[in-house]
Design a protein around this nucleic acid. Structure first.
Lengths: 290, 290
DNA sequence: TTTTTAGTTGACTCACTAGTCATTTTACCT
DNA sequence: AGGTAAAATGACTAGTGAGTCAACTAAAAA
């Protein structure tokens, strides 16, 4: 089962460097050091392989920011910046995957992948919407599409820079910078000086109904587990301590090699609080299977 | 020689819709209504075909904005907005080409195309630099890369929207909107509230030395002709009238079917002014060959 | 009308790649 | 050691697509 991961890594490297169509199964097999036949005992087809790559990496990059967003103790704007920072850190860690993803060719080749991409975009947009409303208030609603569109395009462009200049750029500064720029644009809209260019109708392809069938089931299960843990914590008297523990867990999970013992200990602490036991156990099961 | 253009048009349509690698020479031949063998008597190879497409369309889209920029009578900011507007109009007119271009797959397949793309990017950036300096003054120099980067990413993202929603979006409004947003960002930098993230060193791959050998020779010849005409006009006493004539010529050229008689007449007017004769003749030769 | 020329054709070659499967190798158990 | 199940292999199939070329066609020239 470890070889499966080795294949995923080699493949993402090659796809990122040369593109999906320009990389043959033979090349992937050679770069892993196995035969082509073996590849097909781990993945049914080339399409299956790239879908597995997306399933594997997508959540690694995205979940981080989602979890940071659950910590209600940070002021909204800082939380927003922090989420971008964490996202940028994720991008640095999975550079090849991001390269592959940004080439975007692969999408055009398969119905299934296109649906997945569509879903991911919907996810990104609803996350953005949530944050923009939290940070700038309900008043920005008439301008939300403009802001969301600007945000994602600036975000994407910084992503590209980050990938080629990881040495000079710094995720934390970049996150703050991005939020600062969005704030300028938002204020301009709020002053009524600028009028929106985009509307619901034009953007309907970006709003995905989340209850559709699709991939990411496991991802969503984990998200749900985080969400209900933070939810329960909020309802507790001395929530402060428990938020810290939860935050510490999420930080540890973001490490490239999370320390399982530390996680176990932290979960132990959570489970001591009777009210949190069920949620903590559920999340622990998601994060530390076996 | 007309069949060559028919091929270019069919090919750009197919490349735009399905992508370069997903379109076979056979399909192109069928869509033009000729045999595959004939294709190869007009273009040496598939690569030659796509390079010819780039050579053909690139200048059509880009030259417009360049020429608008030469009219020194508009205030800098309005001129900037107008240039974007004209650029957006061009995008609408050559939608298939823009789609193809934005897919970007083709670039990865050929050294020559990659060099071309690199050159185009350099062109775009130096055009942006010129405009930003004109509009916001020398003071923005320390922030120029940040501003250029933001501008091009917002510009590119609007381009994408425009292609899929040409019915609702309007080039003129979009141009003004874009400049407004850039102005906000620029002012923030000028207030010293925000610090730059990008520097010369990181961006060196975007600054192209213009004296390199490459494509676009004909494009540049035409640019030069425009430039020296506007230059000469500026040195004349009653320049106003002649600027108007020159602007009228550039507008007419932007029509999908420029009226050759009108152009001839306008050029006649210019040539009446002895000081402009040589330049007007040169440009007329570039624009109305035969 | 016959000859020459230019343009057009589509069957063919060659290279490449996704995916298969009979055979071999390895690892494990008795 | 011998036997068996699981895993790995690479030659093979079938399909595709870029590019070629001998044969064909149409039109211009003689």
């Amino acid at each position: 089962m470890d070889k499966r991961n080795a294949i995923l890594e080699s493949a993402v490297e090659l796809f990122g460097a040369h593109g999906y169509n320009q990389t043959s199964m033979q090349q992937i097999a050679e770069s892993v050091g196995i035969s082509k036949g073996s590849l097909y005992s781990y993945f049914q087809s080339k399409e299956d392989l790239i879908i597995s790559i997306y399933e594997h990496y997508q959540q690694l990059v995205f979940e981080r920011a989602f979890v940071v967003g659950l910590d209600g103790n940070l002021p909204p704007m800082e939380r927003f910046a922090k989420q971008f920072q964490v996202q940028f850190e994720g991008i640095l860690e999975y550079k090849s995957y991001m390269k592959m993803h940004m080439r975007g060719e692969s999408t055009k080749n398969s119905e299934k992948l296109a649906a997945m991409e569509h879903r991911m975009r919907g996810r990104l947009f609803s996350w953005l919407e949530q944050n923009l409303l939290d940070v700038y208030g309900k008043e920005i609603r008439p301008y939300k599409w403009d802001l969301m569109w600007m945000t994602q395009s600036i975000y994407a462009s910084y992503m590209m820079l980050l990938i080629s200049h990881d040495d000079t750029l710094n995720p934390s500064r970049l996150g703050a910078h991005l939020v600062r720029q969005i704030t300028l644009l938002a204020n301009d809209f709020l002053c009524g000086e600028s009028s929106p260019q985009l509307n619901d109708d034009m953007m309907k392809s970006f709003s995905v109904s989340m209850d559709k069938e699709g991939a990411f089931i496991s991802f969503e299960k984990r998200e749900k587990a985080w969400e209900s843990l933070y939810g329960k914590i909020k309802g507790i008297d001395d929530s402060r301590d428990y938020v810290n523990i939860a935050n510490r867990i999420s930080e540890e999970c973001r490490e490239s090699e999370p320390d399982k013992l530390i996680l176990k200990g932290l979960f132990r602490l959570l489970k001591d609080k009777e009210e949190l036991r069920i949620e903590a156990e559920e999340l622990e099961r998601q994060l530390l299977p076996e």
